[in-house]
């Protein structure tokens, strides 16, 4: 059972993020929802590489290279890329939120009524 707990945590985090995006009216909270969901996915990506008792896949002169005893390094590189992409999206969303606040004087989604469905 214990082995499944981290995966359960990912699921819960992802659901919290999606819930925030769907149900909240404040656009800052929506952005936070996207960030939470994104980190749930990143956590899952890291968990994929996990190996019981494995050590970090870093090359150094004092240690032998034992591919069997190391965790899978590829997801670590992928998660870094994914974090960078998330950073770009988040920065853009926050800039948009600030501009929207300037136009409407509120972060409330329901009072932004320029678009119709």
């Amino acid at each position: 059972m214990d082995a499944y707990l981290p995966y359960l945590l990912c699921l819960v985090l992802f659901c919290i993020g999606i819930y925030a995006v769907i149900s909240k009216r404040n656009i800052i909270k929506i952005i936070i929802g996207v960030i939470i969901a994104e980190y749930a996915v990143n956590l899952f990506l890291i968990l994929v590489s996990y190996k019981a008792g494995g050590r970090s896949p870093i090359f150094s002169q004092t240690q032998e290279i034992l591919p069997e005893a190391m965790v899978d390094p590829l997801p670590h590189a992928l998660v870094l890329t994914s974090i960078v992409i998330g950073l770009a999206t988040t920065a853009f969303l926050i800039a948009l939120a600030v501009r929207l606040y300037g136009k409407y004087g509120t972060f409330d989604n329901s009072r932004m009524r320029e678009l119709r469905g």
Partner: peptide, 18 residues
């Protein structure tokens, strides 16, 4: 990253001046 920071504080200054 620094440009993002500068943009955000510039926007904030713009808002407070208004």
């Amino acid at each position: 990253l620094f440009a993002i920071f500068l943009t955000l504080i510039a926007l904030q200054k713009f808002e407070s001046e208004k």
